[in-house]
């Protein structure tokens, strides 16, 4: 951060939405895994996601924003295509994050 002479006075922040650079994805203990082939693009995950982490392009869910997704699991829990036990048919599955991370 800049020194006191160069910071905007009064702590005003002039760059809207700058928190995007803060990667809350690092908090994640569970990872929503998206299986595109099972998605019906109902956008239920998108409307409920608290962290704007469902990436939609041209009316289709395309990915999860793992840089910011905190892994709450609301998306998978609410997804109408992710009920029951058959993982292969689900659009969203919560899996432990450690399976995907090599460090730690």
């Amino acid at each position: 951060m800049k020194g006191w002479k160069n910071l905007e006075i009064g702590a005003v922040i002039t760059e809207p939405g700058s928190s995007t650079v803060y990667k809350t994805g690092e908090w994640r203990a569970w990872r929503p895994v998206f299986q595109r082939e099972n998605c019906i693009d109902c956008m239920i995950c998108w409307v409920f996601c608290p962290d704007s982490s469902i990436i939609v392009e041209d009316n289709k869910v395309v990915a999860i924003d793992y840089e910011h997704c905190k892994g709450c699991g609301i998306c998978a829990f609410e997804c109408p295509k992710s009920k029951g036990d058959n993982e292969s048919k689900k659009a969203l599955i919560m899996k432990p994050e450690y399976l995907f991370r090599e460090e730690d």
Partner: peptide, 21 residues
């Protein structure tokens, strides 16, 4: 068109700079 954030929370890493200002 130029939205600003007034009155954010400044933690120990910046609060003192604003007081010096």
């Amino acid at each position: 068109d130029n939205p600003v954030t007034h009155g954010p929370i400044a933690m120990a890493d910046s609060y003192m700079e604003f007081k010096r200002q």
